[in-house]
């Protein structure tokens, strides 16, 4: 058998100088790459520009705000942040941040626990009516949110939960978000059952199997669930608007609106500064959990 070194080299391979065809191909490849990257850079810049402008404008003075569409401030100032933090109410923005967390944290924890329990049930156990129940669950995905607002409001009013955070997170303790349940069910289906069976043979009961074996394997999907829920909660405007009436209890989303309502001449730099701050928790959480998040949303992600 001949080795590679024994294979006679072609004349073209022997000479160092590239042929005309090779030069042409190389030039074309370079040009193509240049066009590709240029186009992507331009489109990418256009897409991210509003965010850049938001951050840039939060350091502008109010007068400079609409004088130029360029994001870079001429005279950068943090006055927007200082004034914005104070707000036009007796409370600082710290209060509103805390309020948001009081909703987001129990909501995220409740969603993670309840969705996992329900998804585990649907993915791993057979029980009478399973197919119908799952179909109903999926059907609720198609139900517009707004349809349930009024009955929910009436219900929570009867329970005396108005102007409390309870209506904003208690439903999530009962696997209210069908989307998350569906996502976790799909993820669970991709995980082989042998690990759970091995745990059962090792003596684990159903709950122990769930906690010690399934949940760790489900972690990427769970991180995605938590992340989505956190971001959605931080961004939720309608929910707090309906149920929260006391300014002291306002979350960030309402507080931002408050600063627009409060004054006739809007202090845009304050509003933008606070918007940047409002975005920060979601961004921080996202970048912390980015690796798991990507793994989680690209379902099927466990090795056999």
């Amino acid at each position: 058998m001949s080795t590679l070194t024994e294979i006679p080299l072609t004349p073209a391979a022997l000479s160092d100088a590239p042929t005309a065809l090779q030069i042409k191909l190389r030039k074309r490849a370079r040009f193509n790459a240049f066009v590709r990257y240029a186009l992507l850079t331009i489109v990418g810049f256009i897409m991210i520009y509003p965010l850049l402008w938001l951050i840039g404008a939060s350091f502008k003075t109010n007068g400079e705000m609409f004088s130029s569409a360029w994001f870079w401030p001429r005279n950068p100032t943090v006055q927007g942040y200082v004034d914005g933090w104070q707000t036009s109410t007796p409370y600082t923005f710290a209060t509103f941040f805390l309020n948001s967390m009081q909703i987001a944290i129990p909501k995220v924890i409740g969603t993670a626990i309840s969705s996992t329990l329900v998804a585990y049930g649907f993915a791993r156990f057979d029980f009478p009516g399973k197919k119908i129940l799952f179909a109903i669950l999926i059907a609720t995905l198609l139900l517009p949110d707004v349809v349930t607002r009024i009955p929910q409001y009436l219900l929570f009013r009867e329970l005396g939960w108005l102007d409390t955070y309870l209506p904003l997170f208690v439903p999530q303790w009962f696997a209210w978000e069908a989307f998350f349940v569906f996502m976790l069910v799909q993820f669970l289906r991709a995980i082989p059952r042998e690990m759970e069976e091995a745990a059962r043979v090792d003596g684990a009961n159903t709950l122990q199997t769930l906690i010690f074996i399934v949940v760790p394997m489900l972690m990427p999907a769970l991180v995605s669930v938590c992340l989505f829920q956190f971001m959605w909660t931080m961004n939720d405007f309608l929910g707090p608007l309906i149920y929260i009436s006391t300014v002291e209890k306002y979350p960030i989303s309402l507080a931002l609106k408050l600063s627009i309502d409060a004054t006739e001449a809007f202090n845009w730099n304050q509003i933008l500064a606070m918007t940047v701050l409002a975005l920060t928790p979601s961004l921080v959480v996202f970048f912390l959990a980015q690796k798991s998040f990507i793994e989680g949303i690209s379902t099927g992600g466990t090795k056999g």
Binding site: P192, E194, M195, E197, A198, A199, F212, I213, P216, M217, T302, K303, G304
Partner: peptide, 8 residues
């Protein structure tokens, strides 16, 4: 088990 079923 056939595919080891080690807890990953």
């Amino acid at each position: 088990f056939q595919n080891y079923a080690l807890y990953p």
